[in-house]
Simulated assay, not measured.
Amino acid sequence: LQQLRETLPLLPPDPYLLLNPDAWHSHNEQLRPLPELAQVLDDISQAADGVDLVGFYAAGPISRGFASSSGAFGWHRANSFNFDFSLFHANGEAVKASYAGHTWNSAEFAARFQQAREQLAFLGRPLHTLAPGQYRAYLAPAALEEIISIITWGGFSAQAIASKGSSLQRLYAGDQSLSPLVTVDEQISGSLSQAFSTEGYPREDVTLINAGKAEGQLVNSRSAAEYGLNTNGASSDESPSALQMAAGSLAQADILKQLGTGLYISNL
């Protein structure tokens, strides 16, 4: 700490350093009981009977804290689990799946595993070569998540939008729009993410895309100072950490009927 204090006077002024002088307080603990490991292992071993499985199971609390000399104090702790696994076919192909959340439900896990088993059976069928062209397609949640994760690399960043480097630049400029069924939020409340940033600003829920049109953006303190915006506690790279997409209206059982002869893309 003394070395940092001695170095500080040697540094040039930072015009975009915007410290938060407010003495805010935030306290959130989501202490839902974690599943018993014996039950988890028993459920996995029963579901995986007769298949080639490899996976990782992680469970425990996530804790984050912040305190400043201005009197701000934040504390966050949440329990969660994640089972990330793959089922392998004899031909070397694999189905990747996961089951994660706050509360382990044996019936829900069994249903999720059974879906992966059914997808595994398709990998043994003959391959079909698709000719170039346009196809009606359904993106399963895992496939859509991979597309969304690419968009989060600066897509909603205030700095990227202001410097014309966002992958969603035309959406934020109003030149393009998505389906009115698409609504995307940064949903901090009730999530595993803490309600404060590492820079010492409270975080809040932000509607990023509303009915297919760009609405909000993620603004950290540096972007707020540089572009005259109000910070909403975004991270240093202004990427989302609790992204939520509004649900659609298509029931799981009706997907193939609606798709017809199109493409069902389970994973990218």
Rank of each mutant, 00 (worst) to 15 (best):
D237P: 01
T231Q: 01
F113K: 01
H76V: 04
L168I: 05
R125N: 13
S266M: 05
P202A: 07
N105K: 06
L144P: 02
V206M: 00
P35S: 09
D49E: 12
N28M: 06
P126T: 03
T103N: 09
W104P: 03
S26C: 06
D205Y: 00
A110N: 04
Q114D: 15
L178Y: 15
L127F: 09
L171C: 02
P141F: 09
D185A: 02
H102F: 13
F83N: 03
S223V: 05
A107F: 13
A58Y: 08
I148G: 00
G212Q: 13
D22M: 07
G190R: 06
L34K: 12
L10W: 08
S167Y: 03
D43P: 06
G74E: 08
G260I: 12
S163Y: 02
P202H: 04
F156T: 00
G200T: 09
A110K: 07
H102N: 14
P9W: 14
D84W: 13
V219E: 04
Q252A: 14
A253L: 11
A107L: 07
L1T: 12
L41D: 06
S45D: 15
F73M: 10
G133Q: 02
E199R: 00
A59T: 13
V51N: 05
E238V: 03
E215C: 02
R117N: 10
S80F: 08
H128K: 12
Q115P: 01
E226K: 15
Q169F: 05
D43T: 05
L31G: 10
Y135G: 03
Y138H: 14
G74Y: 09
P35E: 10
I188Q: 00
S221G: 04
G228E: 12
E108T: 06
P132R: 08
L208N: 00
S191R: 01
E238R: 01
S241Q: 06
V184S: 02
A140K: 00
S163G: 01
N220D: 12
T261G: 12
Q187M: 11
F196M: 04
K257V: 13
R203K: 14
S106D: 11
G124V: 02
A48G: 11
S223I: 03
T198P: 02
A131W: 07
S98P: 00
Y227K: 06
P141T: 10
W153N: 13
A253E: 15
W104T: 09
